[in-house]
Structure formats: C-alpha cells, structure tokens
C-alpha cells in the first residue's frame, strides 16, 4: 500500500526538501499523520515528523531576555531531561542543553505532544478539505484554533496547513508570508503518495 512507500526516512527528506527548497524563509515544517482511532471512524491527526530550521535573521530572534529567567530555566531543565531520555544517560556533557531555548524551538517541541481529533484545530480543519493560510499576528491571535494563538505568542507571523493523502503538512514562519500556489503545489507533489 502507499503507506509502505511512505516511511519515516522519506518523510524527513520530504519535509527538508520542502523547507530548504522554498523561496520563503520558513521556521519549521511538521507532518501531522492521520489515523482512525475507533469504530465510529473518528480520525486523529498526530505527530508524524517535523523539520526545524529556525529563524534566518538571528537579530530578530525573540531572545531569552524577552522571557523570564524562570521560564528559560524551565525550558533548559526540560531539554536536559529529554536529552537523557534519548541518550539513555543521566549526565550529559552537552553544552547545547545550556544554550538559550528560543520561543520557536519551544513551540516546535511542544508541538510533538499535540494531536487533533475529528477536525479540531487548524490541521484538523485542513484535513480532507482545502489549505488554510493564516498571515499576520492579529489573524493568528484572533484564530479560533488554540495552536494558532499559541504560535503567535511564540513569535510566529504565518501558519499554513495543507492537506495531503494521509495527513496534513504544516509550515510556520516568524516572517510574513502571503499565500502562493507554488508552495501548495510543492506539497501536493512531495506528499502525494497515491501514485
């Protein structure tokens, strides 16, 4: 079946190709994987994979100064724990863990814990439907989707959800990026697993 052609490895390459090949500067790309959860046919979108690129303009990056020291300490603590979870060792001489955790890095990490049941949230609304493109802090802040409002708090100015065969591709940026069909077509090509 098409899903066997589509596995974790090619998914990461597709997300990377999409972001690195884009004209615009996207901060991250996420693939929300669809799965049917019960007999009623209710579907859920859950984490499939993600590619984090970060902000191009380091100067504009919302730095630690814009968050409380306590918030930054909390983020570093979480990162240390995640690191030991992954590396399997408690002590890790990893300087990266003490590096400032930016807002968009934190948003990307928090995204891994999220899922969308039966059409909820921007990804849910886009699934089996049409692309959703939200540009501008005000529109994100005024969105009915909590994830969009959260993204705006963490510095995003653009969020896009594009449906594909078995899930939804989401892109986010700290830049203002207006809707263009080129990106939507790229997603359809890169993430269309039917043929």
């Amino acid at each position: 079946p098409s899903t066997s052609l589509f596995n974790q490895e090619t998914l990461q390459q597709r997300l990377q190709t999409l972001i690195e090949g884009a004209r615009e500067s996207w901060t991250y790309a996420i693939y929300w994987q669809s799965s049917v959860v019960d007999f009623s046919g209710a579907s859920t979108l859950g984490w499939g994979d993600g590619y984090y690129k970060g902000e191009e303009d380091k100067g504009k990056r919302k730095t630690a100064s814009s968050q409380s020291a306590a918030e930054q300490e909390h983020r570093k603590k979480v990162l240390r724990e995640l690191n030991s979870l992954i590396s399997g060792s408690s002590a890790s001489a990893d300087d990266a863990v003490d590096e400032e955790v930016t807002d968009t890095e934190w948003f990307f990490l928090v995204s891994m814990t999220q899922s969308f049941v039966n059409g909820s949230g921007l990804p849910g609304q886009a699934f089996n439907s049409v692309p959703i493109w939200v540009t501008g802090k005000e529109r994100l802040a005024g969105s009915s989707c909590e994830r969009a409002r959260q993204g705006q708090v963490f510095g995003l100015q653009t969020m896009v959800c594009i449906p594909s065969a078995s899930g939804v591709v989401e892109l986010g940026s700290t830049e203002l990026i207006f809707q263009n069909s080129d990106l939507v077509n790229k997603v359809r090509v890169l993430f269309n697993f039917n043929n």
Partner: peptide, 26 residues
C-alpha cells in the same frame, strides 16, 4: 497506536542532535 510515540522519539532525537550541531557551529 505505537507509531506516534516512535515518531516523536525519532523526531526528538533528530532535533536534539541538529541543535547540538547548530550550537557548536555558532
């Protein structure tokens, strides 16, 4: 049902690794 946790772990490992490289490069 186990696919999502595995996907999260793989993505997390990749994110942390890339972050380490990014920090060292900067």
């Amino acid at each position: 049902a186990s696919a999502v946790p595995q996907a999260r772990k793989a993505s997390l490992a990749r994110f942390l690794e890339k972050r380490k490289e990014r920090v060292m490069n900067s």
